[in-house]
């Protein structure tokens, strides 16, 4: 694992990011409707539309619009929102904080539950415990997140009144209130991701349990706890780590459904609102940011991989 390797990987990501930028820009412009039309609604006449489009910078050839946007983006300027005039980059970073707090916490907790649970289920393969874990995990990953979120909201927010139903404050402002606001979104996401990760951890552990060195460890007279803790868990974790990276990359890109149900001002909602409003700079900027996060998370996973599987070298 060398800094050169990391730099090389980052450089390789640049064409990917450029492709993302081209695809998002092109696809957005192919979709009918534009922000000027939405702003003026059913009262839009041709003159007003043309004037508003001009003031929004939507006139002129597409390649020029793209080149201008990309040029600014390379300098760290993602433009301003067409809907409310806010600078896009600070807006994204602001919203990302909300999403990241929920996702990191949920995935961390899910990993802490899923990996041991999956390993134990594999150890007791085909037992009642295994069936229960597999059944529970399948159920969790099958539940749509909006439905689970709404159920939790109705139970804990509405019926029991333990947590507020809407709102958000940062931990810096009021840690206790912040915890109350994010507990349900974190729980929803954690439950769903626990289902995904448990199945992966179990499957990886079953593979490892079948290997000769595990049989060897047992024949040496090691306790089952030592076999699992020292030989199975670390080796079974490597494939789960890959999945964890993919999951994390996906979720950090926005948990729009959960953010909408729990009224959280996160990155996913920013993106969805941007798409509905045809707010091109916001959608383009957010997608570029999401792609960058995805690349970085996967790079991090690749760099961590050799720690769990010495056969893999980061060279």
């Amino acid at each position: 694992m060398t800094p050169l390797y990391a730099l090389k990987r980052l450089a390789l990501a640049l064409p990917t990011l450029l492709l993302v930028a081209v695809a998002v820009f092109g696809l957005l412009r192919l979709v009918p409707g534009d922000p000027a039309q939405l702003m003026l609604g059913d009262a839009a006449d041709a003159t007003q539309l043309a004037e508003l489009r001009r003031s929004m910078g939507l006139e002129g050839p597409l390649w020029l619009q793209f080149a201008t946007w990309l040029g600014h983006a390379l300098q760290g300027n993602l433009g301003v929102s067409l809907a409310n005039g806010e600078a896009v980059l600070p807006l994204i970073l602001d919203r990302f904080q909300v999403t990241a707090a929920i996702v990191l916490l949920a995935v961390l907790l899910a990993g802490m539950i899923a990996v041991p649970l999956g390993t134990i289920a594999a150890w007791k393969q085909n037992s009642f415990l295994d069936l229960s874990v597999v059944g529970g995990a399948t159920l969790l990953l099958s539940i749509p997140s909006f439905w689970l979120g709404l159920l939790l909201l109705i139970l804990f927010g509405l019926n029991l009144g333990w947590v507020p139903v809407v709102g958000y404050v940062t931990f810096g402002e009021n840690p206790w209130q912040a915890a109350l606001y994010i507990v349900l979104p974190v729980l929803t996401l954690m439950l769903i991701e626990t289902g995904v990760l448990t199945r992966m951890a179990r499957s990886a552990a079953i593979d490892v349990l079948r290997l000769e060195y595990v049989a060897h460890a047992r024949s040496k007279g090691l306790s089952e706890a030592a076999v699992l803790g020292r030989h199975v868990l670390p080796n079974a974790f490597a494939p789960t780590l890959t999945l964890l990276g993919i999951v994390l990359g996906n979720l950090l890109g926005g948990i729009a459904v959960i953010e909408t149900v729990f009224t959280l001002p996160g990155l996913g909602r920013l993106l969805v609102d941007g798409i509905y409003a045809r707010d091109y700079p916001v959608v383009q900027g957010t997608m570029l940011f999401v792609a960058t996060i995805y690349v970085l998370v996967n790079l991090l996973v690749d760099l961590l991989y050799p720690l769990f599987d010495p056969r893999v070298t980061a060279e």
């Binding site: 509405l158 709102g167 909408t260 149900v261 009224t263 909602r269």
Partner: peptide, 15 residues
Amino acid sequence: VVIPDSSATKAALLA
């Protein structure tokens, strides 16, 4: 209060 989802709005009203 900005609440985009109508079900969440209803839950907020009831709560």
